[in-house]
């Protein structure tokens, strides 16, 4: 790790000031940033150790929809300790429960999870986000078993790494960001973009901005996450999907279906969402809807398996939302 200067603060205002005009990086839980720094992939001049509160809160405003607020410093362990969150936001709870290890859950924060950089092994080996070398896309030509299957026409073939972004987008969450010009609020989905050039970032947040909190309306209906991965212990998801469904009687009146591990941004399966409209969630409808989720898929040489996996994961997330866990052994 290269030497750096260090600032520690619990204040977002000070964090923003400390980031101003320098090549700086925000340190949250540290498991991502410090690993990148050890590999010399990221070499900030200044590390701003931003350690805000760990708070999960649900508030009712008079006459309005109750709102969940999760402050940036909320650790995954604290998120998982909230019984109310587990009951009302199982999609988020489930995704958080599958992240990392007991140690990582104590260290990692929601902001750090959302803003972590890709795990793509070319990026982590120092070949840049797009891993293009001498005009050749290393990920396209090389080992792309974990890479994208959607949006693969461009050079960004890594997959967005945040497991929590997937349920948060499905649940319609917003992120509040503080910068030198003040505060702004964006949808969590807008935190991500597909980089076109190596100098682009996959994150839309500015280098001198900090994420301060996540808010989301209390969901009306059911939500769930399903994740597939190789190991049962600590591992990254191969594919995960979160769904948030509203019902009119037994039929779905609104569906959000978001898939992780398949694209450089959390992938919204719009056609599947439309296909779900007006139907009850059954084995048959879920199967058919999941087939819509892979419309437009363009896998790479080594990740064709992810197409079948994606279908399964979407199907299971839908069924999990209505309590049908058909795949579990009795």
């Amino acid at each position: 790790m290269k030497a750096f200067e260090y600032v520690s603060t619990a204040s977002a205002d000070i964090a923003v000031k400390a980031l101003g005009g320098v090549d700086g990086a925000i340190l949250a839980g540290g498991t991502d940033l410090l690993s990148r720094m050890k590999d010399y992939v990221t070499t900030p001049k200044r590390v701003v150790d931003f350690n805000p509160q760990s708070v999960v809160q649900k508030e009712t405003s008079p006459g309005g929809v109750p709102t969940w607020t999760i402050l940036a410093g909320t650790t995954l362990a604290d998120l998982l300790a909230s019984k109310a969150l587990r009951e009302e936001l199982p999609a988020l709870w489930q995704a958080a429960s599958e992240v990392g290890t007991p140690q990582i859950k104590n260290m990692a924060t929601i902001a750090g999870n959302l803003l972590q950089r890709p795990r793509c092994w070319y990026y982590r080996s120092g070949f840049g986000l797009l891993s293009v070398k001498d005009g050749k896309n290393l990920l396209r030509e090389g080992d792309n078993r974990y890479a994208s299957i959607f949006h693969t026409d461009g050079d960004a073939l890594f997959v967005a790494p945040s497991s929590l972004a997937v349920p948060l987008i499905a649940l319609g969450a917003s992120a509040t960001i503080l910068g030198p010009k003040g505060e702004r609020t964006v949808m969590v989905s807008s935190l991500y973009q597909i980089p076109k050039r190596d100098s682009d970032r996959e994150l839309t947040i500015g280098a001198d901005e900090v994420l301060t909190k996540i808010t989301l309306p209390a969901p009306q209906g059911k939500n769930a996450t399903y994740e597939a991965r190789q190991k049962q212990s600590h591992d990254w998801p191969l594919v995960l999907a979160s769904v948030s469904l509203r019902f009119d009687g037994a039929s779905v009146s609104q569906a959000s279906i978001v898939i992780g591990g398949v694209a450089p941004i959390p992938y919204r399966a719009v056609e599947a969402e439309k296909a779900m409209f007006g139907k009850p969630v059954t084995l048959e409808t879920a199967e058919a809807v999941a087939a819509n989720a892979i419309n437009g898929v363009k896998p790479l040489s080594g990740n064709v398996y992810k197409v079948a996996l994606t279908k399964t994961v979407v199907k299971r997330a839908l069924l999990a939302a209505v309590g049908n866990r058909y795949w579990e052994e009795v």
Partner: peptide, 8 residues
């Protein structure tokens, strides 16, 4: 109603 959980 406020349901706030904070681990310290």
């Amino acid at each position: 109603m406020a349901d706030l959980e904070q681990k310290t």
